[in-house]
Design a protein around this nucleic acid. Structure first.
Length: 574
RNA sequence: GCCGAUGUAGCUCAGUGGUAGAGCAUUUCCAUGGUAAGGAAAAGGUCGUGAGUCCAAUUCUCACCAUCGGCUCCA
């Protein structure tokens, strides 16, 4: 967000929020920080053990409005560090901030005063509170001081503010829209999946959810075949030594599941790559075999902390559309390019736009600096060569290598990290992978890890929200529903249904004892793409009355014409 | 894991210190329909789990479990 005036408004509104909190809760409140964020602002407070309630939010909002209506000026003053520390004696968090600023070499810091409240702040602020007023406090949350879980938990209030009432209104409508699209809600309503207390974080996919799942996997499998992938399946439980070798034990044992078999220790796989490496090693490989592209729809388990679980977005077991590419140094570039194009093709099919990010060496990394530099520059080079815009995420790579991440943008503008291409010089080393080169000598292959959907569970969740549950025909669990007007035409309805079934169309019939209006309503609520109504007229003419989801009655069509049209629609994935 | 909220019928929710109610869904019956709810009846609940207080707990207290909103985390 680069709108300066909007920034000022949000910054100033968060300042007023702190003012209001001080007015209501008194000066024992310790103030932490109140920055602006993408959609608004927040402010962190230390209430010495007390917490805010939803009612407080309303009270604070009211108080803020009162303060704003006073049309007070914001006055900026600048003081040296010493005076600043003097001024904030009762505010330990502010003192910490000032001391840090001093350490960074700042000689002076700024304060903003409005009414009877002064707060340490870099600014800028608006000049007068009369410029404010289109704001809303949204939620209360706990947040660690400075984002570190070892620090004290503070009380955070989130809010948003805009220049005009209309903009605020629009934003609140967008939030309501997002809520309507919530995949947890739609998953229940459309009977796609569920969660049970018996397995927290382990999703249950119902028939309809499984149909979409399979459609996604079939699509990916088809595209993999076109690109000469092989596919394999590796065990879910493997012994602990393997995970020690791979480095996962060192880096992630806290979030792995363990089990004992015949007094020997095993782990449930949190990633697929080690299994795949073992397959690679079952054969000798020639340079002529490379690249080997081995795909696996692999079910992995990760012991995520209880507080992070979130519908299909964050689960404890999920299926990655994983693949590992073993290639020579010479092939690396073309392989990365192929992958970028592959991801692009898949995302476009769903109508997603996306951004790319390059993540570099993290602190707890495996392998030498030289290897990392080599890997990072290889990725950078390809991105630059392809003229792709990308952001660099310093220190965010995997422990075995740098990566390119794809952040896709859904129908209402939210972004999600899904696809990833990871370069790995490290695993082939650990597992001593080899191929025989043209020179007859042994060489080490380079390994690429990649996922496009990422986690199929999560991707499905994103798709539910992206399409608001109204899946395109090729993904719809039920593609066509036949509704005979009355019992008399149930026979013809069944004939029609069978005809579609023979063509592998997912079709069902609703010949229940409900009114026509009711059955159409039900089908619309179920978000079935096509409703086919048949009665006396259709039976006589061998036609179908077609109703398209969300569009209403399209009139009557010959069965064969309609069949051809929907088959095209399915193949085109429109 | 931490902070906060929530948990009542299959679903969405109301309600109460004296063992519960609506709408939708379900079942049955009537109506045989022309593009988003035809009518009637029935059935359905250890009020998340466990303990405590009380003559009495779904209601109050505590612990636990699960879910949601955040924080931290996400190979």
């Amino acid at each position: 967000m680069d709108d300066q005036q909007l920034q000022k408004i949000r910054h100033s509104t968060s300042h007023i929020l702190a003012y209001a909190v001080k007015e209501i809760f008194g000066s024992e409140v310790k103030f932490a920080i109140g920055p602006t964020i993408d959609d608004g602002f927040y402010y962190d407070f230390d209430l010495s053990g007390q917490t805010f309630s939803t009612d407080d939010l309303k009270r604070i909002e009211k108080k803020m409005m009162e303060l704003i209506k006073k049309k007070s000026d914001f006055n900026r003053t600048e003081t040296d560090i010493k005076t600043a520390l003097e001024k904030t004696k009762a505010q330990p968090y502010k003192q910490e901030l000032i001391n840090d600023l001093a350490k960074e070499g700042e000689k002076n810091v700024s304060f903003y005063q409005v009414g009877e409240f002064e707060d340490l702040c870099r600014g800028p602020h608006v000049e007068n509170t009369k410029e404010l007023g289109h704001f809303k406090l949204l939620k209360i949350a706990g947040a660690y001081w400075r984002g570190d879980e070892k620090n004290k938990m503070l009380q955070r209030i989130y809010g948003t503010a805009f220049k005009t009432k209309d903009e605020l209104q629009k934003y609140l409508i967008m939030l309501a829209e997002a809520e309507k699209r919530d995949h947890k809600k739609l998953g229940r309503e459309l009977d796609l999946f569920s969660f049970q207390e018996e397995g927290p974080g382990f999703p249950f996919f119902h028939d309809k959810g499984t149909i979409i799942w399979n459609a996604l996997v079939d699509f990916m499998r088809q595209e993999m075949k076109k690109r000469n992938y092989e596919e394999n399946k590796t065990p879910i439980i493997l012994n602990e030594d393997l995970w020690r070798t791979s480095g996962h034990w060192d880096h992630y044992k806290e979030s792995m599941y363990f089990t004992t078999i015949d007094e020997k220790k095993f782990a449930v796989k949190p990633m697929n790559c080690p299994g795949n490496l073992l397959i690679y090693k079952t054969n000798q490989h020639s340079y002529k075999d490379l690249p080997i592209k081995a795909g696996e729809f692999g079910l992995v388990h990760r012991h995520e902390k209880s507080g992070v679980l979130n519908g299909l977005f964050r689960v404890r077991n999920f299926t990655q559309d994983d693949a590992h590419i073993f290639c020579t140094a010479d092939q690396l570039k073309e392989q990365i390019i192929e992958l970028i194009d592959f991801v692009d093709f898949i995302y476009k099919t769903f109508g997603f736009k996306y951004l790319m990010e390059l993540s570099t060496k993290p602190e707890k990394a495996m392998g030498s600096k030289e290897t990392w530099d080599k890997a990072e520059s290889a990725l950078k080079e390809v991105l630059k060569e392809k003229n792709i815009e990308f952001k660099i995420n310093e220190g965010d790579g995997a422990f075995y290598g740098p990566k390119i991440d794809f952040h896709l943008k859904d129908a209402i503008g939210r972004t999600w990290q899904c696809g990833t291409i990871q370069l790995d010089f490290s695993m082939p080393e650990k597992f001593d992978l080899e191929y025989t080169g043209e020179d007859g000598k042994k060489h080490r292959p380079i390994m690429l890890h990649r996922a496009i959907y990422g986690s199929i569970e999560r991707f499905l969740g994103i798709l539910i929200e992206h399409y608001a549950g109204a899946f395109p025909l090729w993904l719809s669990p039920v593609q066509i529903i036949v509704i005979p007007i009355s019992e008399k035409f149930a026979g013809y309805g069944h004939q029609v249904m069978e005809k579609f079934k023979r063509e592998n169309i997912r079709v069902k019939i609703d010949d229940s004892n409900e009114s026509l209006g009711k059955r159409i309503r039900n089908a619309e609520k179920e978000k079935i793409p096509y409703i086919v109504v048949v009665g006396e007229k259709e039976q006589g003419e061998k036609t179908l009355a077609i109703r398209k989801r969300g569009e209403g009655d399209l009139g009557s069509k010959k069965i064969d014409d309609f069949m051809a049209a929907i088959k095209t629609e399915i193949t085109d994935k429109k």
